[in-house]
C-alpha cells in the first residue's frame, strides 16, 4: 500500500475530553498515532492538535472527516510533509567523563547544531531541534558514549500558507451566525 507519514492538524474549541474524542477515532481503526502535540494556536480560544500517523491516503481522509464530524471540532486538515514546516525537539543525557575522555565534543556539537543545556560532573544534557532524521543522527553519534536518557517531542508544524487554515472558517461561521440570528428575529 501507499503508506506514508501524514500530519493531521485539528482545530478545536477548548473543551474537556477532546483528546479522548479524537484519539478513539484512531484506536477504532487500529491506527498507531506516531506523535501528538496539543497547544493553543494563534487564534484566541482555539486549540490545535498536531498528530502524525503512518497510513494510506484513503484511510487518513476518512479519519479527518470523522474527526471533523465531532461537534466541538472546528476543522481538521490532512497534510504531507512538503506542505509543512515542522520541528521536533530531542534531549540526550550522556555521561560527562566518557565525553571528556573521547574528546569529540566540539565536533559533535558543530556537526549537529546541537546545544548543551547542562554540564555536571556526572552527566551532560544535549538538546537538538530538527527533523526526526536529524535527532536520530545525533542519537547514533552519542550512542558510543552510552546514552542514559533520551526523549523526543511530538511534531509541531505550521503550514506554508499565510494564515492559520481555520481563519476563513471562523469568518464564515460569523456570517452564518448573523444569518441564523436574523432568521429567528
Amino acid at each position: 500500500m501507499d503508506d506514508q507519514l501524514y500530519t493531521i492538524t485539528v482545530f478545536t474549541e477548548n473543551q474537556v475530553g477532546l483528546l479522548n474524542q479524537i484519539s478513539i477515532i484512531f484506536t477504532r481503526r487500529c491506527l498507531n498515532i506516531e506523535s501528538m502535540t496539543v497547544s493553543a494556536c494563534s487564534i484566541h480560544g482555539v486549540h490545535k492538535f498536531t498528530i502524525t500517523c503512518r497510513s494510506n491516503r484513503t484511510m487518513m481522509e476518512h479519519v479527518v472527516k470523522q474527526i471533523e464530524r465531532r461537534i466541538d471540532v472546528l476543522r481538521a486538515f490532512l497534510h504531507t510533509d512538503d506542505e509543512l514546516v515542522y520541528q521536533e525537539v530531542a534531549l540526550y543525557k550522556v555521561p560527562t567523563n566518557r565525553l571528556l575522555q573521547e574528546g569529540h565534543l566540539e565536533g559533535i556539537i558543530r556537526r549537529n547544531g546541537a546545544r548543551v543545556l547542562e554540564i555536571t560532573d556526572e552527566y551532560t544534557i544535549f538538546e537538538k531541534t530538527g527533523h526526526k532524521s536529524e535527532t536520530e543522527r545525533l542519537f547514533e553519534e552519542l550512542k558510543e558514549f552510552g546514552i542514559r536518557q533520551f526523549v523526543r517531542s511530538g511534531r509541531v508544524a505550521v503550514t506554508k500558507n499565510k494564515t492559520e487554515f481555520v481563519d476563513l472558517f471562523l469568518k464564515e461561521q460569523q456570517a452564518r451566525k448573523q444569518r441564523v440570528e436574523s432568521k429567528s428575529e
Partner: peptide, 8 residues
C-alpha cells in the same frame, strides 16, 4: 440554542 460555531 440556535448556533454552535464548530457545528453547521
Amino acid at each position: 440554542c440556535k448556533f454552535i460555531r464548530s457545528y453547521d
